[in-house]
Design a protein around this nucleic acid. Structure first.
Length: 884
RNA sequence: GGGCGGUUAGCUCAGCUGGUUAGAGCACUUGCUCGACAAGCAAGGGGUCGUUGGUUCGAAUCCAAUACUGCCCACCA
């Protein structure tokens, strides 16, 4: 135990210190231990190029809350951290650096040298994001930190690739892929973002070969691709064109002949019904072309300039070509009309450049079989989504999946383990560099391409635990329990982890997928660099503390929904931390000498002790239930409410008179309960606010171990003080009633007042045995019970709570006007309530059909309201008479 | 074109499997220099829960339709 807490809550003074303490004591470490049950979360690896942003803060905090909670519940909790090499993003960054610092392109530097620089870059900057993450308080096992390109993960990638290849699930083929001209690489379908943009339909004349006077009108949004045309398709049922099938048209400018083919693909209703077919630059046309054996003509280069197939436009950028081509078409009379339209355009999700569908030889993963397995585990419940609406999205995507293009024309990443014999051209896919080819050749060249980043990310849940080796870790910690991620990368990542795991591990990689939303700005906009509306978590931590940020994110969250970042919510969280800080300070300040034992305290519990113990017990049960259901926001909110509204506002206030009194033993009992409940509160709050709770914990007497290692409180069936709870709650209402009188009547002095109370039965017992609460908390000097001797004075202000009447005698000071207003308002309210209950009770079907419990409680309510109403009415009469 | 959300106090949002006087934070009003806390204390005001219809003894909660709004998916030449 340390000395008392400083006067004000200042997170900067201890957050870093506490984190260091946890790390130095290896508190985050998890090792195989067959006596304990494992709980595993594998951290979605942030990109090494990344900076910590609010999305991370949310994502990371959720994982930390779950990890800390499970650790306290006695699980062997492993949260495994790491980072992702982020192929494209890093390559772009490193290339930029080389360009600005050395004035060279990456090609000029060469592959080997470039990779050297990239690793250097990773060494210098790759740890930045993980350093930032520590500031959030993450309790991940840093001693196990992994990187997608470290030795083990790389080995896993090769192993996985080879296995899929050997099974025939990976193939190399000439297919239509998405080409990003700016990144100069292919990208997968998932990496293309579609956006509706304004565009134009250009209607172009394609004259018939045998009769140039006649023509087909062809609409296109990308006229420059006409240099890749190798046919025109019409629908076989289309009367307009039936006679032309098999004939030829002339491709304008290029002056090539194109065959007219009949195919189901064209939509007769749309455009002119005749479609130009460009197999090498459009995915649909590619299929049509395959069906009819049409030539695949590539008319663009990799940088989206036109190639020699575009004739005189060779070398021009695609859009420049479009402009000039349209001009020429118009001049030569080939352009029929131009129509405005809106159509969807695909862009690269990294650089936002419009992608170019292009025919290219790439490596692909066959998806059908893999997808089926991933669909099955969702349907049979082995994989659960929280909230479950995301399961539909997941399923829909898998059910419509196409083969996955995995090769990238980049250098930073896992190089494809395919080797080409330089003598015979044979392709060998293998784990090691091949020694000898069938043909006897020994000269091999490895494939130049690297793999899609998500190929390695897909293996993350098990490659980080040692796969392909059969490690103890893998056996013990796998499958993991929860995957926490945003809905924006379900397709990129979640799906890929699932089918990859099912393929090689034969088991789901995680049991639950907890899907969270985005953190938006105060106006509800997405935080983005271009808008400049991003909020830097590090600045927030600096200003408010990590605990406040975490708590704000957690209370604001409902699974799957976006969250708005507002400073006032942050302030509220910080204020809450301050409240807890001061309450704890108050408790510690009042400790004198040694503490009494639980047994000693137990026999001397006062009613408020029993009440608060009973309440924390209930709250513990509820919070735990919420956590079990992933209702973390609710759990945090309940803890907040209990600490502030029950412990601070009521319990501490009730106990003060005992702390300042002369009864030493009674004081010790109060201290005992104050500490006991505080401890449980700190435990419940610890997953959400780890720093402040640990810091306070360090100051508690007789606590030598850390809170992070403490055990989660359990619901105690033995604690049930129903009568005490009822009594204290009645006290609270009476006190509120008196305070209300004080507040409403402006003429009331702030000094102590007498109270005359009329109560019967249980209420009388409660109040007579609980006078001290009313005296101290409502500032009352004396309580007189009304009976034959002590009549209720007319000149008094009054309140009715439950069946208790309270009168504050005031003689000439009385503010009858205020009293009248209060009573009238009260009467009206009661009449309304009573009416509602009476209507319900006079409804026969209610009486016969509603459960007895509900009917009884309505009857009780009726009695209560009648009783109160009668009392209020009598009082009103008197006051009205007084006023005259 | 298909799918999924949201619509509750001035603002931002909670309200799980139908029964509470419909809640919180911020904002607002009034009063507090009383020994944890003004980042605070006490007492208040403010909502026909988007609209319509249905199920039910009973609907913010379940169902249907509708309006507005956001997001995701899709090969609309």
């Amino acid at each position: 135990m340390e000395k008392n807490l400083p006067k004000t809550y200042n997170p900067k003074e201890f957050e870093e210190k506490i984190y260091r303490m946890w790390e130095e004591n290896h508190c985050f470490k998890a090792e195989v231990d067959s006596d304990k049950k494992p709980f595993t979360i594998v951290m979605p690896p942030p990109n090494i190029t990344g900076q910590l942003h609010m999305g991370h803060a949310l994502d990371q905090t959720l994982q930390d809350v779950l990890t800390r909670w499970k650790r306290m519940q006695g699980f062997n909790a492993l949260w495994l951290p790491g980072s992702d090499h982020a192929s494209i993003a890093t390559e772009v960054k490193v290339a930029d650096k080389i360009r600005t610092e050395e004035g060279k392109t990456k090609e000029e530097i060469g592959r080997e040298e470039f990779l050297k620089r990239a690793w250097e870059w990773k060494k210098n900057y790759g740890g930045r994001i993980t350093d930032q993450i520590r500031k959030l308080g993450n309790s991940c096992d840093w001693e196990r930190e992994r990187f997608t390109m470290d030795e083990g993960c790389s080995k896993a990638v090769t192993e996985f690739f080879v296995r899929l290849y050997e099974k025939g699930l990976i193939y190399k083929g000439n297919r239509l892929i998405n080409w990003c001209p700016s990144c100069a690489t292919s990208i997968s379908d998932a990496e293309v973002e579609h956006e509706d943009k304004k565009g134009k339909y250009y209607y172009i004349k394609y004259p018939l070969a045998e009769n140039p006077e006649e023509h087909l009108s062809i609409a296109t949004t990308r006229p420059e691709t006409m240099f890749g045309d190798s046919g025109v398709a019409v629908h076989p049922d289309d009367e307009r064109y039936r006679h032309l099938v098999g004939k030829k048209v002339i491709l304008p400018i290029a002056n090539r002949e194109l065959e007219i083919v009949a195919d189901e693909y064209p939509d007769m209703e749309k455009g002119t019904g005749a479609v130009k077919i460009t197999p090498a630059h459009d995915p649909n046309d590619f299929l049509v072309g395959e069906r009819h054996g049409l030539e695949q003509i590539i008319c663009m280069n990799e940088d989206a300039t036109m190639n020699k197939n575009a004739g005189k436009y060779n070398g021009l950028d695609r859009y420049e070509c479009r402009k000039l081509l349209l001009k020429e078409l118009e001049e030569k009379g080939y352009l029929i009309k131009v129509e405005e339209t809106a159509h969807s355009v695909g862009a690269c999700y990294r650089c936002n450049t419009v992608i170019e569908p292009m025919l290219s030889e790439q490596w692909f993963v066959k998806m059908e079989e893999l997808a089926e397995a991933a669909i099955e585990v969702a349907k049979d419940g082995r994989l659960m989504h929280v909230p479950d609406r995301f399961e539909k999205i997941y399923l829909h995507w898998l059910e419509n999946i196409k083969d996955w293009c995995i090769s990238r024309q980049l250098w930073w990443g896992h190089r494809i383990p395919a080797y080409y014999c330089q003598d015979c051209g044979e392709v060998i896919v293998s784990r090691e560099f091949p020694q000898k080819c069938k043909c006897g050749g020994k000269d091999f060249k490895q494939d130049e391409d690297v793999l899609d980043t998500w190929f390695s990310s897909g293996l993350w849940p098990f490659s980080t635990l040692g796969w392909p080796e059969k490690t103890k870790d893998l056996e013990y910690f796998y499958p993991t329990d929860v995957l926490v991620t945003g809905y924006d990368i379900i397709f990129f990542w979640v799906v890929r982890m699932v089918f990859s795991a099912l393929e090689v591990m034969d088991e789901v990689p995680f049991k639950y997928v907890y899907v969270h939303g985005l953190v938006r700005d105060a106006q509800g906009r997405k935080m983005s660099k271009s808008l400049g509306n991003g909020v830097d978590p590090l600045e927030i931590i600096d200003q408010f503390g990590a605990d406040a940020l975490r708590f704000m994110l957690m209370t604001g969250i409902t699974p799957g929904n976006d969250i708005r970042f507002k400073t006032d919510k942050l302030e509220a969280s910080r204020n809450f931390a301050n409240k807890l800080w001061n309450a704890s300070r108050f408790v510690l300040m009042n400790i004198e000498g040694s503490l009494i034992s639980g047994e000693e305290a137990k026999i001397a519990y006062k009613d408020e002790d029993k009440w608060i113990l009973s309440r924390i017990n209930t709250i513990t049960e509820e919070v735990t239930a919420n956590m079990d259901k992933f209702e973390l926001g609710m759990a945090a909110q309940k803890t907040y409410d209990f600490i502030w509204n029950e412990y601070c506002d009521w319990y501490i206030e009730m106990v003060k008179s005992r702390l300042y009194g002369d009864d030493k033993n009674d004081k010790d009992v109060a201290i005992f309960v104050l500490i006991k409940v505080l401890k449980d509160m700190l435990k419940l709050l610890h997953p959400f606010m780890p720093f402040i709770t640990e810091e306070i914990w360090r100051h508690l007497p007789e606590e030598s171990s850390m809170l992070i290692k403490a055990s989660w409180p359990k619901y105690d069936k033995g604690i049930s003080f129903a009568a005490e709870v009822e009594k204290i709650e009645l006290m609270m209402e009476v006190i509120r009633g008196i305070r209300n009188i004080r507040a409403e009547a402006e003429t009331l002095p702030s000094k102590k007042l007498k109270a005359v109370i009329s109560a019967e039965g249980k209420a009388y017992e409660y109040i007579s045995s609980g006078e001290r609460y009313i005296k101290s908390l409502a500032n009352i000097s004396e309580i007189i019970f009304a009976d034959e001797k002590n009549q209720v004075p007319d000149d008094s202000m009054s309140a009715v709570v439950k069946s208790v009447e309270i009168y504050i005698p005031l003689d000439e000071l009385i503010d009858f006007k205020a009293e009248l207003e209060r009573l009238e308002k009260e009467e009206e309210r009661l009449k309304k309530e009573l009416e509602r209950v009476e209507i319900k009770l006079s409804n026969e079907s209610f009486i016969s059909k509603a459960p007895e419990k509900v009917v009884d409680s309505e009857k009780e309510k009726k009695k209560k309201y009648q009783d109160m109403l009668q009392k209020v009415s009598e009082r009103l009469k008197i006051v009205r008479k007084k006023i005259g």
